[in-house]
Design a binder for these strands. Sequence first.
RNA 1: GCGGUCGUGGCGGAAUAGGCAGACGCGCACGGUUGAGGGCCGUGUCCGCGAGGGUAUGGGUUCAAGUCCCUUCGACCGCACCA
Length: 823
Amino acid sequence: MNERYDFSGIEAKWQKYWEVNKLFKTTEEAGRKKYYLLEMFPYPSGKLHMGHVRNYSIGDVASRYLRMNEYNVLHPMGWDSFGLPAENAAIKHNIHPNVWTWDNIAEMRSQLKGLGFSYDWDREVATCHPDYYKWMQWIFIQFFEKGLAYKKKNPVNWCSSCQTVLANEQVVDGTCERCSTPVGKKDLEQWYLKITDYADRLLADLDKLIGWPNKVKLMQKNWIGKSTGAEVDFMIEGSDKTMKIFTTRPDTLFGVTYMVLAPEHPFVKELTEGSEFEAPVNEFLDRLQYLSDIDRTATALEKDGTFIGRYAVNPLNGKKVPIYIANYVLMEYGTGAIMAVPAHDQRDFDFAVKYNLDIIPVVDSENPDIDVNNLKEAFEAEGIMINSGMFDGMDNVAAQEKIIAYLEEKKIGKEAVNFRLRDWLISRQRYWGTPIPMIYCEECGWVPEKIGNLPVLLPTDVVFSGKGESPLTTSKTFKETTCPKCGKKATRETDTMDTFLDSSWYFLRYTDAKNSREIWDKKNAEYWMPVDQYIGGVEHAILHLLYARFFTKFLYDIGYCPADEPFTNLLTQGMVLKDGTKMSKSKGNVVSPEEIINKYGADTARLFILFASPPDKELEWSDAGVEGSYRFLNRVHRLIFELAEKIKDAPSGYKPDSVDDKKMAYVMNASIKKVTADVGDRFNFNTAISSIMELVNEIYRYKETEDPNTGLLKAAVENLILILSPFTPHICEEMWEHIGNKGTVYHEKWPVYDETALIKDSIEIVIQLNGKVREKIEVANGLNKEQLEEVVMENEKVKSLLEGKEILKVISVPNKLFNVVIR
RNA sequence: GCGGUCGUGGCGGAAUAGGCAGACGCGCACGGUUGAGGGCCGUGUCCGCGAGGGUAUGGGUUCAAGUCCCUUCGACCGCACCA
């Protein structure tokens, strides 16, 4: 150790030591308490950004802390390495996606190592590696064989810029989540995963996830969007068709004054063909088609529709009501058709007002200010049934059940549940993804590739046009094959999988990353799963986390995963901001980790990023703050360098005698306690670090006192290095060695604090009058209520404050405060 | 529009179970060390001369409120015609 803090020398030295000694290698050890700590793996875009540094610094502190607490910690890292940027780079720079991706991985891996993160690199995975996507294909085939993967033709979201379809989840405000291009519709035959079969479980099991932020659970809940109600059949006059609708308000059935079909509903054409209404309906449909998805879903969009010339019959009261098509009814939700009750639904109300349709109230408000016969807006609250025949007078909530029972009895409807969640469209017309391992045979239909033939390798003889169709179709060797079932000529699926599939199970592969015989040894999954702590950005609250839960449940069902939820605890870290906004190239406010590491070292970068803000909140980047962290490490370094000689021959025990000794011992033990709680229980690294700073300040003070106890000084120095080591491991290794230790601080046990040192002889008591602080006094520790009252009342200042006042009440809180209520 | 989170010094933030508001750090000021600068060390730093006041706003509960309840204002996030 030099007198000067040579961070680059220190960091290179210890990173090499860790690597040579395989310090972070983890093996399954039966009987030892395990902890699976996982950070979201990155997309290898080129270089790390500050968000990565934050994510992985949080994880690394937790990992190192847990290891010092003798957990067997699985802390892996890998690459979410399929995806569009590689392909776009290929088109732009004429470099193969494979080359581009692996170059980036090499660069980012070395950056991660340069930050000193304690990963077990022997378990590294990359989703673009055939050893990985082989098992991705295997999982897909399991889905197919269980009937959960299917192909259907449907109008799908199409991004004209990315030239591919998008899942519903990837459409944000009507635009592509990646490039913000307005998303259009295209009728295509695509592969889907039947996530809707798991909707109920995905919803119900959210309750089990007590270690997840409520915000994330709520977002998932809303996304799944379960609503309960009824399906009701309405006869269409002069047709053999029945119009099936879904409603959450069966109690309002008597208030139906018109019906609406979604414009895309298949009935529309049939019911209008050849009639005088065909022309106006087609005109309306043309007008709608013209609108983009954004316009169509905009809030401000006015209700618009047209009568189609047909009538439906209300099965409860036989009433004839007109059928409309309207822009506010969606084909994708429910049955694509609704009953309209303008009196009790605001959308229907708006539409009825515009087209001068009847408004019939069937629920009366108990609030006298609301006249349901003269509504200014829909009355959507609860009330008493009216105009509803045999149901009149009932409470409308109770009436829902009764009406459903009646519908079921008459076989005109039934109780029904609807989800907002749709099946997951997983086909992508792109190259850089896992080939879908399916083969189409004229005789046998869609047949999965034989397991023994996996992986279906990505061909390399392809053309990257970036246009419309999967590049795989341009391969001369890929498409033509034979049917695995009947042996006849057949063709391969040329689409690839959405990369979100790859990331839906990587955490399981880490448990046995190099297994070439099977996806993983079930014993390993049994040992490590579930992930105890998952850490990543909140931007994955819906997509990735929902898909990962879905995969885990499926793999659980087929016996490959011991847990039916993947992540016990979830920490969603906040964004890294600069000047109040997200760092981005276009804003020119990016601070690169590389430049910070070169200037101050990895330890300073880690320390600052953990100190500046609690992990789950946003972090405002501050160059001055980085300087401060660097200054602190220098201060620690100087302290240890100075004291090393002094404590060399110090005794290993100590007995605090003087007031200074006791204070030193107190701060030392309080810091250990605080850091243990903040890191171990709360993930509040910022306050842990401030407590370590207080310890450093106290050691600085104590060493200058008259006769510092060298044994105590030694203990303080050792404990300081130990509790600081998860945050800034390199400098701590160096200091640990410098004060005469062999080996690595990483193998040391986390220090325990001495509770007795935290008991002070005397305590400062706050004295309040009517809740306002008026005086503070020192009293002996441990006085009970009565003793405390006695001491306080003897106090001269208190006596004078109370003079001439009437004491109404006293509140005595031992070791804390004393409040006198006076008049 | 609906749902949620959150408003604390000049700044990042602390106050973990209702009990001393502003820990720790940044910045700033002054002093020391130094040939100077930087670095380092020390002192001070919510407002007010003071009594006192103070956690966006106004109210409530309580002996006691940053913390619990309600009002208003503001910021941010998610969803957005889901029948």
